[in-house]
Design a protein around this nucleic acid. Sequence first.
DNA 1: GATTTATTTAATAGCTCTATTAAAAGCGAA
DNA 2: TTCGCTTTTAATAGAGCTATTAAATAAATC
Lengths: 204, 204
Amino acid sequence: MAEINNTEQDILDAAEKLFLRKGFALTSTTEIAREAGCNQALVHYYYRTKERLFTRIFQQKMYLFLAHFIDGSRKNMPFETKIRKMAEAHFNMLIKNQQLPFFIFTELILNEGRLNILMDSLDENYEEVYRIFNDELQEEIRKGHIREMTFLDILLVIVSLNGMLFMLNPILRKGFTGTGDNYREFINHRREENLRIILQSLKP
Amino acid sequence: MAEINNTEQDILDAAEKLFLRKGFALTSTTEIAREAGCNQALVHYYYRTKERLFTRIFQQKMYLFLAHFIDGSRKNMPFETKIRKMAEAHFNMLIKNQQLPFFIFTELILNEGRLNILMDSLDENYEEVYRIFNDELQEEIRKGHIREMTFLDILLVIVSLNGMLFMLNPILRKGFTGTGDNYREFINHRREENLRIILQSLKP
DNA sequence: GATTTATTTAATAGCTCTATTAAAAGCGAA
DNA sequence: TTCGCTTTTAATAGAGCTATTAAATAAATC
C-alpha cells in the first residue's frame, strides 16, 4: 500500500463500508463524506470520480474472493484434500467478509462492464489454475476415486452452498433472536453440513 | 385479476420487466413510461407512487417463489418423494423465472421494511406447513431413513444449489459462446446434479 | 348534442446527486 | 515572515429523479 494520509484513508474506509452495505448505486459521495467526517468535495479531490473510488475497492474485494482457488492449486496434497481445504478457506473467508457475496454478485449483474473486466481477468490469471485442477480431476476420475464431473461442477457446489448461506445472512438472522450465540452455533453447524455435502458430491 | 385497461397493463408489464432486471432503485418512473410507451405522469396516475407499483409486483413474485413449498406439503407421498418434487418444482419455476432469485434477495436485503413484511407473512402463512414438514422429517429420522438434520437444513441446500445457479446466470452464460444450446444442456446437467446432491444429503 | 367522467399531456416544484471551481486555510521550507 | 504547495471549504452548475397540477383530449352517459 502506498502511503496515504488520514483523510484519504478515512474516505476509502467510509466508501468501503457503505459500498459493501448498499452497493454502488445507492451510495452517494455526500454520504461517504459524511461517514468519513469531511467535505463532499474532498471525496472527488482524492478519487476524482465515484466510479474510480468504487473500482479500487471492488477490485480488491474481487481478488479476496478469488484468491483461495489459486492457493489451493499450489500445494502438493491428495486431490480430495485440496478440495476440502479450498471449501474451508472459502467458508472462513466468508465468515470474515459476510457481505462479500452479495456485494460482488450485485455489482457484476447490474454492471456488464465490470463483468467483462472480471471475465478478462479470469482468462488471463486463472485459466492455467483451472486447467491444472481439471487435469488432476480427470485423472482422479480415471482412477475411479471421483465420479464423472467437471471442475466447474465442484466449484458451483462450493460457491452455492457457502455463498448463499451468507447472502441469506440478513434473512436468517431474523429467525435467531436473543444473543448472537445461537446464530454463531448455526453457522458452525452449516459449515460442517456444507463441507460434508461438498465432499460427498465427489463420491462415485 | 381485475379488469385493467391497456395502458394500465402496459405500465405494469413495463415495470415488471425493468424492476426484475435492475431492481427498485435503478428503475425510474420515467423509464417505465418510456418502456410502456406513455407519458411519465400516467405511471403515477394509475399507481400513485413508484413504491406502490413496485410492491404490487414484488408481492406477486414473492408468492411465486414460495408457493411450491405449500403444494408439496399437501400431497400424500413418501417424505423423500416430497422433497424431490419440491426441489424439481423449485428448479422448474426458476427456469421460467430466471431473474427471480436475484430480484428477491436484492430487494429484501436492501430494504429492511420488505424483509419485515416477509417475515410476518412467513409466520402467518407458512409456520404450520413448516411444522408439518418438520414433524414428518423427525419421524423419518427416528425410523433411520434420514440422517439427523432439520427441515431448514434441507431448505438451505435446495435454495442454495438451485437459487445460486440462476443468480450466476449472467456470469455463467458468458462462458458459453455460440448458440444457446450448450447453455441449455448445461442447465439440464445442473438440474440433475442438484437433485442428486439434495437427495444424497438426506441419506444417513 | 350536451354534460359529466376518465384518460392523457406538458409543465414544473422541490429534491438529490455528481462533479467542478474559486477561494480559504494549513503548513513546511527558504 | 513570506512563498509555494497541499488540503479543505462553500457554492454552484447541470442533470435526473418523484410527484403534483392544471389543462387538453377522449369516452361514456344522459
